[in-house]
Design a binder for these strands. Structure first.
Lengths: 170, 170
DNA sequence: AAAGTTAGTTCTAATTTAGAACCTATTATC
DNA sequence: GATAATAGGTTCTAAATTAGAACTAACTTT
């Protein structure tokens, strides 16, 4: 499989991996949320090679998460800013940070946290359903194939004792 | 930077990337949530090479997201199941799928969706604060360095005009 | 005039991934 | 009782990606 193939996969998660499916991209986004905007700042703070950084920034721009805009002329210099799409990624980052903090413990303290803009208090994130307000987790939610088009794929793998047409309870 | 270095980074997001920072791991987890448990099923459904699949499953086991357990003897066979830690990853997957669906559009329909276990209706995920119930997004939340230990790092990069000690408003 | 700043690009070497073939143990089929 | 089939891997070589360092370009500052 080639890298680029993921970006037009039918599965949204696969497409997402076409953007953040490497060691660096999510960390670049983290820096963006911390307010970093310039090439050299990203490079120094992350320790990523300039070569890769340039490529990743280009990809984030292509995928619409960042925009490159001039912040001065003579000499012409550009900075990278989160677009609306990039900003909407915040809940993913937050959910991931929360998961990692709970499930991948570390002896050293967390270097930064998510706080509310008004009170400055640390947030305690829960994913809920916008309509019902119910908490969304492995117990309340099920991942289900969207009938029609997926049925064909499923047919390729006949009567598997673990066929995933209805994921089992925890 | 070597791969393994991320797994004991101070930043939880970096540690998370030590687990899912590649093209395949998240897709393996997706399959787990769809109910897949066996080596060959993962391999056929994803098209990943057996070599990499074996490695990734091993890593997911090491990191505590999956457990390998026998489901038969003669011949001895093992299957992979989500652990509690793996199951708690569900909200991250959900948030990411939601983001990708909204921000990385595709001409083809989404092959599977998240539905509630009781009503079977498609969910509409929002990240909220457990305490206040407020929606958590780029407008309401700020990523802030956790004062003390980070202050030293910040000192290394003196008076940067874009110093990220207080991330700016959207 | 020399050195510094900022944002890259261009090389070579090392590491990772792809792709195919092979191995082991056991059960099913001819 | 030999031959295939199933399941879960491992072992190769070739291709692609990443690391690391050096270099360029267009200015500005000392």
């Amino acid at each position: 499989m080639k890298w680029h193939d993921l970006t037009d996969d039918a599965c949204p998660l696969a497409r997402a991996m076409g953007v953040i499916g490497d060691r660096w991209t999510l960390l670049i986004l983290r820096e963006c949320f911390l307010g970093v905007r310039r090439f050299d700042s990203f490079q120094k703070r992350l320790g990523v090679t300039r070569h890769l950084l340039a490529e990743r920034l280009k990809r984030l721009e292509t995928m619409g998460l960042l925009e490159r805009r001039p912040y001065q002329e003579r000499p012409l210099r550009h900075e990278y800013r989160l677009t609306a799409s990039g900003k909407e990624f915040a809940p993913v980052l937050l959910a991931m940070q929360d998961w990692a903090q709970r499930n991948l413990p570390s002896p050293v303290p967390t270097p930064f946290t998510f706080v509310t803009r008004d009170s400055g208090e640390k947030v305690d994130p829960v994913l809920t359903d916008r309509h019902s307000g119910a908490e969304l987790n492995h117990r309340s939610v099920l991942m289900a194939p969207a009938a029609a088009s997926h049925a064909q794929d499923a047919a390729k793998e006949p009567k598997d004792p673990e066929s995933p047409s209805a994921a089992q309870a925890p």
